[in-house]
Simulated assay, not measured.
Amino acid sequence: MSHTYYAPHGGHPPQTQLTSDRAVFTEAYAVIPKGVMRDIVTSNLPFWNDTRLWVLARPLTGFAETFSQYIMEVLPGGGSDKPELDPQAEGVLFVVEGEMTLTLEGQTHAMKTGGYAFIPPGSNWQLHNESSEPVRFHWVRKAYEFVEGIDVPEAFVTNDNDLAPTEMPDTDGRWATTRFADPSDVRHDMHVNIVTFQPGASIPFDETHIMEHGLYVLEGKAVYHLNQNWVEVEAGDFMWLRSFCPQACYAGGPGPFRYLLYKDVNRHPKLKINAL
Rank of each mutant, 00 (worst) to 15 (best):
L218R: 00
S184N: 14
G173M: 12
S131G: 12
M211T: 02
F137Q: 03
H213E: 04
P199C: 03
H209C: 00
S132L: 12
G200S: 01
L163V: 10
M190S: 08
T158N: 13
H191L: 10
N229F: 08
V195P: 08
N161M: 10
A181V: 11
R141W: 07
D162A: 15
L163H: 02
G220M: 03
V231I: 00
F197A: 01
I150S: 10
W139P: 00
F197G: 00
L163M: 13
A181K: 07
V157S: 08
F180A: 14
V223Q: 03
R136K: 12
V217M: 04
D206S: 02
V157R: 11
V217Y: 06
A176S: 15
V152F: 05
R136P: 08
R141I: 05
H191W: 05
V186C: 05
E167V: 15
F180Q: 02
V223Y: 04
L163Q: 03
D206N: 01
E167R: 15
K142H: 07
V147C: 10
T171I: 07
T158R: 15
A164L: 13
L163N: 00
L163F: 02
P204G: 05
S202N: 04
D182R: 13
A176C: 14
D182L: 06
K221D: 02
H209K: 06
I203C: 05
M168F: 15
P183T: 10
P183H: 09
G220I: 01
G173T: 05
N159Q: 07
T196Y: 05
T171K: 14
S131V: 04
T178H: 11
T196V: 06
R174D: 10
E207N: 01
D151M: 01
A143Q: 08
V223N: 03
V195K: 05
D182A: 15
Y144K: 03
F146C: 02
E154S: 10
H138A: 08
H188M: 04
E145Y: 12
Y144E: 03
A222S: 03
A222F: 06
V217W: 07
S132R: 13
T158D: 13
T171D: 07
N193T: 06
W175G: 08
K221N: 07
R187K: 10
V186Q: 10
A201K: 01
N227K: 04
H188Y: 13
G149N: 00
A155F: 13
W175T: 07
D162E: 12
Y144Q: 02
G200N: 04
M211R: 02
R141K: 12
L215I: 02
S131R: 14
T166C: 14
P204S: 09
P169Y: 13
F197C: 07
F197N: 00
H225S: 12
A201P: 00
R174P: 00
V135H: 15
N227Y: 12
Y224K: 11
D162C: 08
T166K: 09
H213K: 06
F137C: 03
D206W: 00
S202Y: 01
P199A: 03
E130K: 15
E154Y: 06
L218M: 07
